[in-house]
Simulated scan of single mutants.
Amino acid sequence: MTPYSLAFYLDVVTTGTVLGLRPTDSPDRVTEVLGPDFAENSFDDSSMWRDYGLAEFFWDRASAGLPWSGRHFTLQVHRLARRDRTLVNDALRARYGRFAPRLRFEKVRRLLERRGVPLLEIPEASANAPYYRSFWQPESKVAVSVIGACGEYSTPDRLRLGDVYSIHAPMAAAEVEWRRARVG
């Protein structure tokens, strides 16, 4: 179908999942699919995330005695520009093959539009605008962050204008409306 890692990104944006993993899946379920090779970070027994290189999954809970509740996942696409093969998890590589070091947003957008999966531009919530631009897929609730302008802090890892920086899910419609109201 689509060469290298493009099929992976199209699947994520279309479905809002990583290899079928939802943002709400438990740590055990994520480990079952992505494997035990991760770095784990936590704060005060109330939040935790696991870093698989390209993919990161986040959880929180009200207290140490309660189970973890899935919050979101982020694909740190910008890290691939380092050309470190260890950043792509074995499970992802087995399914999708080789991953390119950069992801061009317009190519992803064009392929998604052919599938009938639109990406809507939304205001950037951080002080980094206009260096980053954000796009949202309403059905899957996936957000895509793109390098929007070149500047000292906007081109980490040797990214270029129009490269995807990261992909995040979920982004609720309420957050999109909040962003629009902030700038409107």
Rank of each mutant, 00 (worst) to 15 (best):
Y4N: 15
S5I: 00
L10G: 05
D11N: 11
T14H: 13
T15Q: 14
T15V: 11
G16Y: 07
T17S: 11
L19F: 02
L19N: 00
L21V: 07
P23F: 15
D25R: 01
S26Q: 10
P27L: 14
R29K: 14
T31H: 06
V33G: 00
L34A: 02
G35Q: 06
P36E: 15
D37H: 10
F38A: 15
A39N: 13
A39C: 06
E40L: 09
E40Q: 13
N41V: 06
S42W: 04
D44G: 01
D45E: 15
D45F: 15
S47M: 08
S47F: 01
M48I: 05
D51L: 09
L54V: 10
S63E: 12
A64Y: 06
G65S: 13
P67M: 12
P67N: 09
W68M: 07
S69N: 11
G70V: 10
R71I: 14
F73G: 02
F73Q: 04
V77P: 01
R79W: 07
R79I: 00
R83I: 01
D84K: 14
R85K: 12
R85Y: 01
L87S: 02
N89Y: 08
D90H: 10
D90N: 02
R95T: 14
Y96F: 13
G97S: 05
R98H: 08
R98L: 04
A100L: 11
P101C: 02
R102L: 03
L103R: 12
V108E: 00
R115K: 07
R115W: 03
G116M: 04
G116H: 03
L119Y: 05
L119N: 00
A125D: 13
N128A: 04
N128T: 05
A129Q: 03
Y131C: 15
W136M: 06
W136N: 06
S140N: 02
S140L: 07
V142D: 04
A143S: 13
S145Y: 06
S145M: 11
I147W: 01
I147L: 04
I147A: 10
G151F: 05
G151A: 08
S154G: 15
R158S: 13
L159Q: 14
R160A: 13
Y165H: 15
S166K: 07
S166P: 08
P170T: 02
M171H: 01
M171N: 02
M171F: 08
A172G: 08
A172D: 08
V176Q: 04
E177M: 04
W178N: 07
W178C: 02
R179C: 00
A181F: 03
